[in-house]
Design a protein around this nucleic acid. Sequence first.
RNA 1: GGGCCCGUAGCUCAACGGAUAGAGCAAAGGGUUUCUAACCCUUAGGCUGGGGGUUCGAGUCCCUCCGGGCCCGCCA
Length: 571
Amino acid sequence: MTEYAFARAKREALEAVRRALGEPVDLPVVLPPAEVNADLAIPCFPLAAQRRKSPPEIAGDLARAIQPGPTFAAAEATGGYLNLTLARPAFASSVMSELIRLGDRYGSNAEGAGRTVVIDFSAPNVAKPMSVGHLRSTIIGAALYKLHGFSGYRLVGDNHLGDWGTQFGALLHAYSMWLDGDAYEQDPIAELLRLYVKFEEEAGKDPSLRDRAREWSLRLERGDPDARRLWEEFVRHSMAEFQRTYDLLEVSFDHTLGESFYEDKTREVIEQAVARGIAVEDEGALIIRLDNAGITTPVLLRRRDGATLYHTRDLATAIYRIRTFRPARILYVVGSDQRLHFRQLFAALRELGFGDVEYVHVDFGLVRLPEGRMSTRRGRVVFLQDVLEEAIERARALVDEKNPELPDSERESVARIVGVGAIKYADLSQSRIKNIVFDWNRMLSLEGDSAPYLQYTYVRARGIIRKAGDAPPAEPFDARAAASAQEWALIKHLSRFPEAVHDATHTYFPHVVANYLFQLAQLFHTFYHEIPVLQAEDEDLRRSRQHLVGGAATVMRTGLDLLGIRVPERM
RNA sequence: GGGCCCGUAGCUCAACGGAUAGAGCAAAGGGUUUCUAACCCUUAGGCUGGGGGUUCGAGUCCCUCCGGGCCCGCCA
């Protein structure tokens, strides 16, 4: 497997220290703060106690022991830190040739080779429009999908539609009572939403409606043709509606196997649990106790009335995935309000003998409105489609203003790329753990720390390359193109892209990549402002700077692609 | 009542246990005859919710209190 220049430098730094000490110590290798004139630093404090020497003494000894060589040009001690300065020409040239050689594969690795990851994401509920709440799972899941692909995993993206359960009983009943045929004809999902809200209102006044809903629910489960036909119609209408949103988001799935797909697979789960002796009757229901795993709330496999529950279906789903895809890892990109549910699910799977799969609940905070939690039932909800359309509209207004000379069709496509990118970036640029209070202006921001800022970086870089006529990259890389602070900072940052990708994949935090790219954008804009490329003093320098610009463009495009964000050539 | 998560500049957020905690927005000022100003450069802004502890070193780990969010067998 390839070791990138930055990782190699860190490894060599440690090895140099080990050689100097004559023993295999393990120390952190960190980046010195900006005001320190060095490229890597090793804190020597942990060595002090055992050696009965002060950290500055040890750092000083090490600095003297490490002679300038092909990797490090200088070593010096500042306080308890050993500060190392990279040999610029060699390092710059390594980074640049990696970039040329790998192109848009730069940053990728083969860690996942031969392993399969199943990613369960998006999973909207049928018969309801997607709200901005569903955006998170969809976008975080899509990013993790690409990130794992970049690490060589075989990928299975599965949209686990909420197309089953008691809510369909309510909907079927409401449909039978209050359907407005014309409205349904016009916009089926809007009418189904109205029916759902209506049912909740009426059931609040007359609880016996819940019994009607249960009856419909039972008819559906038993395969009653009328109930079944309507349900299939609801699913079909919903899928068509979802597809419009997925098209805009440019998200796709390898499978869309909703909960209903597993309905006939729950019996085997129950039998297996009973056979293994882990399922027990309790108050008429069938449960799995998880006290051994430190979980006091048991999993419910079967209700008193014989119906299965979502836990049962989730178990059947996991088992089906394990048998069908043989995954090393299954990711569930689902909100943190379901943490307990997944702890239970994973513990139950281990009890059932499926313990050799790595299960991860990639949880994220809720999207709330300023006035409180979103509630479809109470009409307090922001629809995803509306947000996307508004974003594209705002982006279009801006393109029209900034670049009226672009052809109409290009302005349209730029508006889409920028608008949708802004939405995705607003979500992916912050840690997924925290709750988000939805704010139109914040989510649709097109300046500062936002997708367009990063896209504009690419556009500027591409502008230079285009004007230069796409000349082949300069090799060897001219050392003078790493001489200024701006150039050197940019090169060093480019060298850290593989690490950012790696960290994001391992922690399931796409924002690590987003933050990396934002920094890249800042460094590039500063570079762009102060370092002439096309007007460089001579041909060698010009071509090497051009090469650097090209590398920044490639990394920006690759990184944004991993986040599911596209780049325009002009904007 | 029990459990989990969050609390960092006015606002929204970053920060593998490492040096003087950084950005964006908002505020004040400056920059375009030179590769796209959706940009760049200044300035100002902090007891990292409070209090204890562990560590050479804590925004980060542990305990506790306060504030907010979420969850706690017959919904998903």
